[in-house]
Design a protein around this nucleic acid. Structure first.
Length: 156
DNA sequence: ATTGAGCGT
């Protein structure tokens, strides 16, 4: 259980309390004209505002990840079977089988998110491979919106 | 329910 697992406001609150206690202790040691309670409150405020800047948001992109487009899937295939298939090549962070908004039926394609190296291995191995009587198409997904975990394209 | 190239709340 890491601290980064918790929501940012929890981290901020913790950070603020620590600052507040530190301010309280400091003010107690120095014994200045300021009220210890006031120093505690100032520490809370300062910590509350600074914590979001100092604490990095919970980072799901510690591992560089790649999203694969998987097409030509059988309509019967469920998320679990697709995940199991790709997990033979590494960790699977997410599987999204696209369904029709109205009917809820699967559209025959989806997206699998894996670590970069595992994704490449899965792409090479599973593209044009047979899966439940269908020949899969595995490509690198076209990022739809600017995602947080895309590699910087080096200017060549 | 059905279908068969496709790039997503």
């Amino acid at each position: 259980m890491k601290l980064s697992q918790y929501p940012l406001y929890v981290q901020s609150a913790l950070f603020a309390v620590v600052l507040a206690i530190a301010g309280y202790l400091l003010i107690t040691l120095l014994n200045p004209p300021l009220e210890p309670a006031l120093m505690f409150a100032l520490g809370l405020l300062l910590g509350g505002f600074c914590a979001p800047l100092l604490i990095r948001p919970a980072s799901p992109d510690e591992i560089p990840t790649t999203t694969l487009y998987v097409g030509n899937l059988p309509y019967r295939a469920n998320e679990a079977s697709v995940r199991a298939l790709f997990e033979t090549f590494g960790q699977v962070l997410s599987v999204r089988l696209m369904k029709d908004k109205q009917t809820g039926k699967r559209r025959g394609f989806g997206f699998v998110e894996m670590p970069k190296d595992a994704a490449q291995a899965a792409l090479q191995a599973l593209n044009d491979s047979e899966f439940q009587q269908r020949t899969l198409k595995v490509r690198e997904a076209n990022e739809r919106k600017e995602e947080d975990n895309e590699e910087r394209q080096e200017p060549s």
